[in-house]
């Protein structure tokens, strides 16, 4: 039997749901089923985004205690292996309940649902930080200074520390043309990330990387 949503892949997930007393059934492929699930969970996460403390399972606390899941979500019964991570047997409902994933593989397994979540609680779902085993190539030369990269949240009430500002200016003057080019690309990349244009951000990231690698070979 084909998936009722995409009519392409083989349906292996049986979804029964009850919305305001009306029951419906669907047979979907794992991909469409995951998308279906994230469609219903994403909105809930949004309203619960408060202040997560490091290590606090706030998602779980809030969803669990408020019991909102059962109120706002259609009752969904998913009779399929796809509903659980094959490595740790954790379900997306378990993630909702506890605020925690079961194992690293959960990220791959619940990818589409998590992407929706990250759009709400993070700055998109594309990692732009350092990779394992590699030093963040920038920070050996770059001083952590005060330039807010977030466009929609400028804190303009007060000027930053005067000494710091002059230090920034000094550093800008000392940059070589290549470094200035990298700096300007970096700013463009930040802007692209801020407007969630990840394609542009990725292109700029590669461009920066190329320039940097060229720079290292020169030395």
């Amino acid at each position: 039997m084909k998936c009722e949503n995409c009519n392409e892949r083989e349906a292996s997930v049986h979804i029964k749901q009850n919305i305001n007393g009306v029951e419906s059934e669907q047979y979907l492929c794992p991909q469409c089923a995951a998308a279906h699930q994230s469609h219903y969970s994403v909105g809930d996460f949004n309203q619960f985004f408060t202040n997560p403390a490091f290590g606090k399972s706030w998602l779980g606390d809030l969803l669990g205690n408020a019991g909102m899941l059962s109120h706002t979500m259609p009752q969904t019964t998913v009779n399929s292996a796809a509903a659980r991570c094959p490595k740790c047997n954790w379900s997306f409902e378990d993630i909702n309940k506890t605020g925690l994933l079961g194992c690293p593989h959960c990220y791959e397994h619940f990818e589409s649902s998590l992407k929706g979540l990250f759009q709400r609680i993070q700055r998109g779902s594309q990692h732009v930080g350092r990779k394992p085993g590699r030093r963040g190539s920038e920070h050996d030369n770059v001083v952590v200074t005060g330039s807010v990269s977030d466009n929609n949240a400028k804190y303009t009430d007060l000027k930053a520390d005067q000494d710091q500002t002059t230090q920034n200016e000094r550093e800008t003057k000392e940059l070589s043309p290549l470094e200035q080019k990298i700096k300007s690309l970096k700013e463009q990349q930040d802007e692209a990330v801020a407007r969630e244009d990840y394609l542009a951000a990725a292109r700029l990231r590669d461009e920066i990387k190329e320039l940097r690698e060229g720079k290292e070979e020169d030395q």
């Binding site: 202040n51 997560p52 490091f54 990250f118 993070q122 700055r123 998109g124 779902s125 594309q126 990692h127 732009v128 930080g129 350092r130 963040g136 920038e138 920070h139 770059v142 952590v144 200074t145 005060g146 330039s147 807010v148 990269s149 977030d150 804190y155 009430d157 007060l158 000027k159 930053a160 520390d161 710091q164 930040d190 990330v193």
Partner: peptide, 28 residues
């Protein structure tokens, strides 16, 4: 005072943003 966002920004961006906010709080 700490960052909430961990995905979609690099380590350096997060540290720079925090630093700039802290500089302003110090002045205030």
């Amino acid at each position: 005072i700490s960052n909430q966002v961990t995905l979609g920004l690099s380590e350096l961006d997060i540290l720079s943003d925090l630093r700039s906010i802290i500089d302003q709080i110090i002045q205030l």
